[in-house]
Design a protein around this nucleic acid. Structure first.
Lengths: 99, 99
DNA sequence: TTGACAAATGTCAGATCTGACATAATGTGG
DNA sequence: CCACATTATGTCAGATCTGACATTTGTCAA
């Protein structure tokens, strides 16, 4: 039980709210990355299967990445984007709230 | 078929270069995130133990995050930053090579 | 030096992620 | 409708990650 600002915010609630907001940020980031992956693939007129081959993975995994399946990590999304030619500096969209 | 670095397979030089560049982007991203985490913690004058408590994890895990230990994922780094109050829009540094 | 605190490192069981496969669903052009 | 291509979904063994703990190393003041 600790004091925050005016004084009565209690630990668990703070943590709950905090984690909730963190959740939103995290989920939005994932969605933005998966959306970008799909856009980049379509921009290059490739199928999921072709992209999978380029990334050394399977079509189903690519489908899950683009669908933001819960089994897909940000690591995989980032490595896929980088492996697909996207650069870190191309990820400026992370800085806007409207992916 | 060989393994490179943490274990990325490839077959041709083109793939090798491609994955190498992807590697660099990925590693730089990880390093930038872990550096930011440490900076934010120090900015708030907290110890790793205090930060660990706030993030519901352990001091050793925080140390590994800040040290960019290979056992730490980008997911964990991002979730930690978000849980620590950093917002997606604060990650503009992802667009620069500095960090 | 010692004590006290902060940070780093090693380990590991349990949790989560990943590639691969099969299969189903959704187009798309006859 | 039919084939065919593309995308989506379910499953699972093996790989990777995570929290927690113990231990070590580093720092600093007395």
């Amino acid at each position: 039980m600790k004091k925050i600002g005016k004084g009565w915010v209690e630990g668990e609630v703070e943590d709950f709210l905090n984690l909730s907001l963190a959740d939103v940020e995290y989920i939005e980031t994932r969605m933005a990355l998966s959306r970008l992956l799909r856009e980049e693939r379509r921009k290059k007129k490739m199928t999921q299967g072709e992209m999978a081959e380029k990334l050394h993975t399977s079509q189903s995994r690519v489908a899950k990445m683009e669908r933001c399946d819960p089994s897909v990590s940000v690591d995989l999304l980032l490595r896929s984007l980088f492996g697909f030619g996207i650069k870190r500096k191309d990820l400026g969209f992370l800085t806007t709230s409207r992916g």
